[in-house]
Each structure stands twice: as structure tokens, then as C-alpha cells.
């Protein structure tokens, strides 16, 4: 599943994920009917609007062996929150989907392993932002670090307070922008203090929010999804960056 944000804002994340999965020996399909997991409505309390979206996702992805998503947040939605939306037959179907849903980096370290890379190490100081849902719902913490080490030869320069939310929070960032901006600033300040030039993460929501704030503040940080880094030294501009 390509997340809605990758679809709309950062297609290269989707293509990078496909390349990585193929490199790990998978046959990859992105179903034409896929749109979004329905989190915005769900998290805003519009549960009845989220339910049919979830049903559509369940139906769309039922034929596949694995559902791999380049986002801890959307993976968490499918894995943890879908089953809670239903009872009876739909709950069974949601649980079946949950059981085969994986976040990309965890899938690449536990199910389909990536072969050793044939390219040179990435010449960049990288720090990593752990998305909250990935961290707390999907158990994603050491996997992206391990992959960056193995695939890119990069040792992550850790953020202080790396378990604290960046302030994206879906609709939260637009409904309470001032608080959200303060949280983004904290995260960005830690990123600058880490000495890294690249801020990587596994969730585009967080990254778009941080990139937008970094751009507003004129910070010199290249912000990228981890799939872009793992798939090969990316040449295009970072998130929110213009073409030189």
C-alpha cells in the first residue's frame, strides 16, 4: 500500500519502496483502487465515515500475501485500529489483514531481507525521527537504524528526546497549529543540535510537517523518507526543497 501522502506529495517514496521490495525478492503490486487508510476521519472522531473506507481497504488488499506500507502510522491504522472498528465477519477480515500488514523497514529486516548493497556509502550525517505510531504500535525503532547502517553505511546521529512526538498528529497540526509549531521547533532544534544534515523518518506526515516548518525557519536540513535513502543515493530535492 502506498500511503495517500506518498501518492500525492512524494511519489518517489512509493517507487523507492517498490524498488526495495523487489530487491528483496518480492513481486509487488499497487492496486489501482487504493486511496488512503482513512486515518484523518478516524482520528478526528468521524468513525462512521472511516468505517466504509476501512472496508474498501480490507477488500482491496485481501488477495495479497503481505501488505507492506512505508509508514508506521498507516500500518498501525490497519494493524491496530481496523479490527477495533468492527464486529463479526468484518472483524475477522480486519484481523486477517492486520496479521499480514507490515511497516516497510520491519518487513525488510524480518521477512524479506535486503541483500548487501553494491554501491558506495552515503556521505551524509543522518539523524532519524521515530514516528509515534511506528514506535509504539508497530515496534519500529532499531530496524531503520539497522538498515541505514547496512545499506547506506550510515550511523544515525540520535536526536535527544527521540521518543517525543514532532507535533504532526494528522488534523491536529492544522487545528492547533501554534502548539504543533512549537513541537516541530523542538524536534528541529534537536535535529540541528545533532549535527546531522539529513533528517530521515519513516512517516511522510511528520516529514512534511517538519519540512514545512524547517523551510519557514530557513533551516539547512535535508528531509527525506528513509525509503528514498535506502533505495539509492537520492538525487532529487529533499521534501519541501526547490530545484536548484
Amino acid at each position: 500500500m502506498v500511503t495517500c501522502l506518498a501518492d500525492l506529495m512524494r511519489p518517489s517514496v512509493g517507487f523507492s519502496a517498490i524498488r526495495l521490495l523487489e530487491r528483496a525478492g518480492c513481486r509487488v503490486t499497487v492496486p489501482e483502487q487504493q486511496t488512503c487508510c482513512g486515518q484523518p476521519a478516524y482520528n478526528s472522531g468521524e468513525i462512521d465515515a472511516a468505517v466504509p473506507v476501512a472496508q474498501a481497504v480490507i477488500e482491496t488488499f485481501e488477495p495479497f500475501d503481505y501488505v507492506v506500507i512505508p509508514s508506521g502510522s498507516c500500518a498501525g491504522m490497519l494493524s491496530h485500529h481496523y479490527p477495533a472498528l468492527f464486529e463479526g465477519e468484518w472483524r475477522e477480515r480486519a484481523l486477517a489483514l492486520s496479521a499480514k500488514t507490515w511497516e516497510l523497514t520491519r518487513f525488510l529486516t524480518e521477512v524479506a531481507l535486503l541483500p548487501a548493497p553494491k554501491r558506495a556509502a552515503l556521505e551524509a550525517a543522518v539523524t532519524y525521527h521515530d514516528g509515534c505510531a511506528g514506535l509504539r504500535e508497530m515496534g519500529i525503532q532499531q530496524q531503520p537504524r539497522q538498515l541505514l547502517q547496512e545499506q547506506c553505511g550510515v550511523q544515525v546521529q540520535e536526536l535527544t528526546e527521540n521518543q517525543v512526538c514532532c507535533g504532526f498528529g494528522g488534523t491536529f497540526c492544522a487545528r492547533m497549529p501554534e502548539i504543533s509549531g512549537k513541537m516541530a521547533d523542538d524536534k528541529l532544534n534537536h535535529a540541528v543540535a545533532s549535527g546531522a544534515k539529513v533528517l530521515a523518518g519513516g512517516d511522510l506526515g511528520c516529514l512534511l510537517h517538519l519540512a514545512g516548518r524547517a523551510k519557514r525557519r530557513g533551516l539547512d536540513l535535508e528531509i527525506r523518507h528513509i525509503a528514498e535513502l535506502l533505495a539509492g543515493n537520492p538525487k532529487g530535492p529533499g521534501i519541501g526543497e526547490g530545484r536548484q
Binding site: L8, M9, R10, P11, S12, C173, P177, E178, S180, G181, A184, L208, H209, A211, G212, R213, K215, R216, G236, I239, G240, G242
Partner: peptide
């Protein structure tokens, strides 16, 4: 109000 809106790729 707080951030730029990153342009889609």
C-alpha cells in the same frame, strides 16, 4: 500559519 506547504514532487 506555522509552516510552509511543501510542494508535491
Amino acid at each position: 500559519s506555522q509552516r510552509d506547504f511543501p510542494a508535491p514532487e
